[in-house]
């Protein structure tokens, strides 16, 4: 199946790339296992997109209001793809899944949920997450599931920019001034305990050989590339223990509930309404 055949008046990019409405109208239906896999990837993108959106109108420069806003917008787009696709298994829409699931039903990694902190902390989170997503989508493009492969192909193009943005700022902050180096280093310490969870082989993955990417297989390449950038930016790879509870359940997270409170408040005040 190719998504290029779906015509839409609101299509923003030409060619093979996909939009959420394509998935909803294509008639494709995810299996239960594929849906649970897509849900986890969608939740990661949604949580981080929601966090980054908070920077808009608060960034250090106008150019960064635009850049961080654009990254957030990309991530919300990725969340829409994955949640729409997951919803096809259960007869639910992207908004049913984003707005009407409770905290314990989300499957996001804690790294994506961490607070923005200062700009250094946000860049530390971006650096780790975009390097991880780059490896993930590079592999997911080869999935035997054409919808997952199409989403990954579209997302990868955008994540490459996210990675460039994070790398450029890591170098500026790491090499620019002592204060910036210290702040980014602190950001890395703060985010580092949540790296294990990115590579946890969560529950439906084993059921989906050739379809889902096995997270643990991405780690070596991720570490090699990330550590090289950290060294180039004159920073240290933090030597800190990993946080327990890295299984995407959210049982060991305090942030998720706060994020959802804000995200869901209006939609839940008007159940059944359309917007």
């Amino acid at each position: 199946m190719s998504y290029a055949s779906f015509e839409s008046a609101t299509r923003h990019s030409e060619g093979e790339s996909i939009i959420a409405e394509d998935i909803a109208t294509s008639g494709v239906q995810a299996s239960e296992a594929v849906a649970r896999y897509a849900l986890a990837l969608g939740d990661d993108a949604l949580m981080l997109g929601q966090r980054l959106a908070h920077w808009i109108s608060r960034a250090p420069e106008l150019e960064e209001d635009i850049a961080l806003g654009n990254i957030a917008l990309d991530l919300i787009g990725h969340a829409r793809f994955f949640l729409t696709y997951a919803g096809t298994a259960w007869g639910k829409t992207e908004d049913d899944l984003a707005y009407f699931r409770d905290e314990e039903e989300f499957r996001s990694v804690r790294l994506a949920e961490q607070e923005n902190g200062d700009f250094g902390q946000t860049i530390a989170r971006q650096l780790i997450f975009s390097y991880y997503q780059y490896e993930l989508y590079t592999e997911l493009m080869k999935s035997e599931d054409p919808t997952l492969a199409a989403i990954a192909a579209k997302a990868l193009k955008e994540v490459e920019y996210h990675q460039d943005h994070a790398t450029a700022w890591a170098l500026r902050l790491g090499i620019g001034t002592e204060e910036a180096n210290r702040r980014l280093q602190e950001g890395l310490y703060y985010m580092w305990p949540y790296i294990d969870e990115l590579f946890y082989d969560f529950e439906p993955v084993a059921e989906l050989p050739g379809v889902a990417v096995v997270p643990s297989t991405l780690r070596a390449r991720f570490e090699e590339r990330l550590h090289a950038t950290i060294a180039e930016a004159q920073l240290q790879v933090p030597d800190v223990p990993q946080a327990r509870g890295g299984d995407r359940s959210g049982v060991m997270s305090e942030h998720r509930g706060h994020i959802l409170t804000e995200l869901q408040v209006l939609a839940r005040a008007h159940p059944g309404a359309t917007w």
Partner: peptide, 14 residues
């Protein structure tokens, strides 16, 4: 932005 009532509205507002 963070409270937009649907993901599509959120994306448009951003």
């Amino acid at each position: 932005i963070t409270r937009a009532p649907s993901l599509k509205r959120k994306a448009i507002l951003m």
